[in-house]
């Protein structure tokens, strides 16, 4: 364990103008918006990162951040966001899927055609399993259709954990008791295992979101959940990822991004759709000005 003095954050003077400079950079780079009334929240996280990077001033830290040395943008974004993943996270989008997206998708389906849903990145599997559970619990038409759910990530360790389906009880914090009882079996006081039937209903694969060759193998999805990953990318990678995702969707298909992300800042390829429960992005059914 590191000695206490190393763990402590260093007291480096940060001015109001420094904070504004940081916030403007964060907004432009990631879309995350913080104003002056979050000063304490910002100061704490900023001090943590200044200490972690051994910077001796805000200016030195900001230079490290701008050059993205040692992936500092990713570290800072992590400090400003909730990294913990759990079942039914951002469930307003799952509500939107059932209340609005599926009806529209079914309008374009022929008899017997599957509904295809992709969770990328899926990390350790909480998201694709949440999609499956939400559909089972909240969509009255779930038994009328074949539904394919694919979970993909670049991290093969995360994928192995996803396929194992073993979780700490903390990951269940947003789930109603009856859902836990239906889909999880207790291993011990701290761990549960997801129902084998549910586990086998999700296919896990390794994919790099900005590798066009990887992504070219995935097509015809109706809904893609791509949450909290684009904010980590630089502008060029975001453009490439947006084009890759466009190709993975069926015309009229939807993308759900994380709450701090907006596709319109990244690309004009998608239409913004405002539904009561969520703002999502749609691949247009056709080009309006085809030549």
């Amino acid at each position: 364990m590191a000695p206490p003095e190393v763990q402590r954050t260093r007291a480096i003077h940060v001015t109001q103008e420094d904070v504004r400079r940081l916030c403007e950079f964060l907004y432009r780079r990631t879309g995350m918006s913080f104003d002056d009334n979050k000063r304490y929240y910002i100061d704490r996280r900023l001090a943590e990162r200044i200490t972690a990077t051994a910077s001796n001033s805000f200016q030195s830290y900001f230079a490290t951040l701008r050059s993205d040395a040692e992936h500092e943008i990713e570290h800072l974004v992590n400090a400003f966001t909730v990294n913990e993943t759990y079942f039914y996270r951002e469930d307003h989008q799952l509500r939107c899927m059932v209340s609005n997206l599926l009806d529209d998708i079914l309008r374009r389906k022929t008899t017997g055609e599957s509904i295809r849903i992709w969770s990328i990145p899926c990390s350790t599997g909480e998201e694709p399993y949440s999609i499956a559970m939400w559909l089972m619990e909240n969509w009255s038409e779930v038994d009328k259709y074949n539904i394919e759910i694919v979970g993909s990530d670049i991290d093969t360790r995360a994928l192995k954990a996803a396929a194992d389906g073993v979780y700490g009880t903390r990951a269940l914090m947003r789930l109603p008791r009856h859902v836990i009882e239906r889909y999880f079996g207790r291993i011990d006081g701290n761990q549960v295992r997801i129902d084998p039937g549910l586990r086998d209903s999700v296919q896990f694969t390794r994919v790099n979101l900005i590798d066009a060759r990887d992504m070219a193998l995935y097509r015809d999805f109706d809904i893609v959940f791509c949450r909290n990953v684009l904010i980590y990318f630089d502008d060029a990678s975001r453009r490439i990822a947006a084009e890759n995702l466009y190709d993975c969707l069926r015309p009229g298909g939807y993308i759900c991004l994380g709450h701090s992300e907006t596709m319109s800042r990244i690309s004009t390829l998608f239409r913004v759709c405002r539904f009561p429960d969520a703002i999502v992005y749609q691949r247009p059914e056709a080009d309006h000005d085809d030549s």
Binding site: V142, N146, G197, L198, S201, Q203
Partner: peptide
């Protein structure tokens, strides 16, 4: 369950 899984193999 209504879920179908297409095995890559």
């Amino acid at each position: 369950m209504p879920f179908v899984r297409r095995e890559i193999a």
